[in-house]
Amino acid sequence: MGVGVSTSYGRSYSDRAFATDYRMPMEFTAAANLDELLDVKAQQPDAQLLAGGTDLMVAVNLAHHRPEQIVSLGRVEELKDVGSARIGAGTTWARLEQCQYTALAQAARTVGSPQIRAAGTIGGNIGTASPAGDGLPWIAAADAEIIVESKERGERIVPWREFFTGVKRTSLASDEVITGVTIPDNLPDAQEFAKVGTRNAMVIATVSCVVMRGDDGFRVALGSVAPTPMRATRAEEMINAESTISDAVLEEFGRIVQDEVQPITDHRSTEAYRRHAAGVLARRLVKRTLQ
């Protein structure tokens, strides 16, 4: 026998009903710079970070999530740089659409809508750590690292595999702030992104994929097919052992990718289709990096 607004009502309504009071006072700090941001996080480790608002405000609006402490990093200019060694966490998708990293620019263009891209940031994508985060396969393919910083321990560079620990879970400590992403020295120029969705704009990825071709061979990363962004390691090993990329090799490569991903069936797609599409995308992107 259930009592109250049961969890089987599912998603939206149960969440909302137990939410805290909208009118409870909230502490809000608009950090002027990185030092102030780190100060606030040191004093208020539970404070939630507000960047573009494209995830946090959805939770506020729909789930009636009521954060008690907010620190906004919208005014922290140090976080908005795209350089040759790092991308600032506060860089918007609109800015990244124009960046020099081909596959990241391609991914940026598929994020939400123009309105979302003008607000949302890559740091938010990393912090939210959704399996479908559009920027995450690029980070995995680039073997980029997540730069985090706290007042107490200073800067910490975390390999992406250690940073993303599960569905919407990361190894970020409560007093830490994501400040950016490193750009590895050996980042291949030949890099391509693709994303499947059931609509041509404003769509959450059914599957996304980045393939890079560099001196060390092909790198293949995928999103929406596992709890975290993932590399198709076995498929990479297979294709990197081949001297020529024939159609037969690509077929086999695609099959391994299909096999290697760990997707689920949900209301957006099925496990079977996600496996299939992962293989097709990876195969097509290998071809694109060879063009």
Binding site: Q106, A194, K195, V196, N200, L281
Partner: peptide, 16 residues
């Protein structure tokens, strides 16, 4: 890509 299936998701070359 905006005129091809998959749109800016860049899934689909014209040849497919």
């Amino acid at each position: 890509p905006r005129l091809l299936p998959g749109g800016t998701g860049l899934t689909t070359p014209a040849s497919s």
